[in-house]
């Protein structure tokens, strides 16, 4: 449930709000309906991880990945654009997970 809410709200916000709004959404969603710390973290992580993969692919597939194939060469990594996708998704996941974890911990701090 938490995962879906974060994913859908972040997806909508991505069209007109800055990227870090995903963190605010994950935080607030977990604040209200988060249960355990572990669940919240992974919901946030997976939601943004998946969302960013979707957003990347929406852009990159019609592009035949030509841009990603160039940009990966800026990194000291093997020249496989898919790595860029993974790094992007991991960063998003980490931010989402941390934000959701913060949300649920905040609620616990204020509940009896």
């Amino acid at each position: 449930m938490l995962l879906l809410i974060i994913l859908i709200l972040s997806f909508i916000s991505s069209y007109f709000l800055p990227w870090w709004m995903a963190a605010a959404i994950a935080f607030l969603a977990a604040l209200f309906i988060g249960k355990t710390s572990g669940k919240a973290f992974w919901s946030g992580f997976v939601a943004i991880f998946v969302l960013w993969i979707i957003l990347v692919l929406i852009k990159s597939i019609p592009n035949d990945n030509i841009l990603a194939s160039r940009v990966i060469q800026l990194f000291p990594l093997p020249h496989q654009w898919i790595l860029l996708l993974l790094i992007t998704a991991l960063i998003g996941g980490l931010v989402g997970g941390m934000a959701a974890l913060s949300g649920v911990l905040t609620r616990k701090a204020f509940s009896k």
């Binding site: 990227w19 870090w20 960013w52 957003l55 990347v56 019609p62 990945n65 841009l67 990603a68 960063i91």
Partner: peptide, 30 residues
């Protein structure tokens, strides 16, 4: 940290995020 430039390394979050980062520059063939 993801929005900050360290030396010559661009703000990694700003650059990589699919919402406003470089992925947005991928032009569609259609």
């Amino acid at each position: 940290a993801l929005q900050t430039k360290f030396g010559d390394i661009p703000p990694i979050g700003d650059f990589l995020n699919p919402v406003s980062g470089f992925w947005q520059n991928a032009e569609s063939k259609n």
